[in-house]
Design a protein around this nucleic acid. Structure first.
Lengths: 216, 216
DNA sequence: TACGATTGATTGAATGGTCAGTCAATTAGG
DNA sequence: CCTAATTGACTGACCATTCAATCAATCGTA
């Protein structure tokens, strides 16, 4: 599970790993995991191919480290964005905003995570998924808060949480289209407008309510 | 761009390709593109490895055919679900419902499409993206209809379209979590409830409106 | 009808290239 | 000098792709 290194000096291990993982992230994002060779990674990191294996046991380790980087960035960068915000709605908005911005900063890596999580060993995949759930937990908490204060009605928290996660990830996954039409600011604004403003007009609401009672 | 075959008889080509692509889809979904060998595909399809190359020029062709299958399924199966539905809201609901169900039937293949589209040549990737846009067009049309009839307010159609696409795809992408907690029927119902019912309570709406005017 | 010739499908062994991972030799710094 | 870090040539496996050989079906002709 843990990735082990042959080198003793922990400071050196940290520095070198950072360089290697950065190089790996760049190449994996651009070319994909399987099309990237250790030689390429090493040369981009400015070291020899053999040295990589002093800091990592196998190529798969690099994939784990790269994906972990992304997932941790989410967990690391969202909380500070909420600091000092009390109103539940404001917190929810800030969460969505922060999540989208973290993803925006790491679009390529986010897409990589989607492409490659399945290439991890089952153990490691589960490990990443657990981390992902921890991030989602922050979103769920913000939603639950809103419900507790009666600002949001009792919708399915899991489903809304994933809608938000997917809105954020969607900015990376579909950036080939979205980026040609919107800035991240507009995307966040319009997404929140749909989510919080609701989409129906008063007459739409009447129609929808009628439909619902008909279905009963 | 087109995938060519060495075999003359078009009937045979169609039958064999169907077998080969089905085998490829199954193995690519389970093991990923790069971990799957032509030998495995051939033996699952009940033929020799050499024969595969009579129906396909290279391994990459198989990936294109497999992904095309999925994307086409969307375009093929959504329209019939809308037949005879006139009310714009009902059409929108039916579109979301149909899309989610198509994805549900092809969860593994949908995930595969996300994992592997980047492994296609740029030309082929663009080709698939164009197909995807055609599918999205159906969703956008349903939304635009609702707006035209004043049942939905003037939200950003592109953004809402992608929210819906991602809700549908999300069922496949996050099925490792969602499937343990919901059935597809519940997922569709709860997603629509959030989307159409809106999430805010009256007091939430007041709060949100106040926030918006403050921002101006 | 019979049977050699032709065509096209099919097989699977052989080829060639690629790369992950290893290790003996070299370097640097303490 | 030691010792840990570093190099890069090397190895062994693996696998996409090719191709010579086989097989089955159909055709043409007597």
């Amino acid at each position: 599970m843990q990735v082990t290194s042959m080198v003793e000096d922990p400071e050196l291990v940290q520095r070198r790993r950072k360089e290697i993982v950065a190089a790996a992230a760049e190449l994996f994002s651009k070319q994909g995991f399987y099309r990237t060779t250790i030689k390429e990674i090493a040369s981009l990191a400015g070291i020899s191919s053999g040295l990589v294996y002093q800091y990592v046991r196998e190529k798969d380790d690099l994939l784990l480290l790269v994906i972990l980087e992304v997932v941790d960035a989410y967990a690391r960068e969202i909380p500070p964005a909420l600091a000092g915000i009390d109103d539940p709605i404001e917190r929810l908005v800030a969460t969505v905003d922060a999540y989208c911005r973290v993803v925006d900063k790491r679009r390529a890596a986010t897409v990589l995570a989607y492409r490659s999580t399945k290439s991890l060993s089952p153990d490691r995949r589960r490990f990443i998924q657990r981390r992902e759930l921890e991030t989602n937990q922050m979103i769920s908490a913000a939603i639950a808060d809103c419900i507790r204060s009666r600002l949001v009605r009792k919708i399915n928290v899991d489903v809304l949480t994933y809608q938000i996660v997917l809105i954020a990830h969607g900015w990376a996954l579909k950036s080939w289209y979205l980026k040609t039409r919107l800035s991240i600011e507009q995307y966040i604004r319009d997404s929140l407008d749909i989510l919080l403003g609701g989409i129906l007009t008063p007459s739409g609401r009447r129609r929808y309510a009628a439909r619902k009672s008909r279905r009963k």
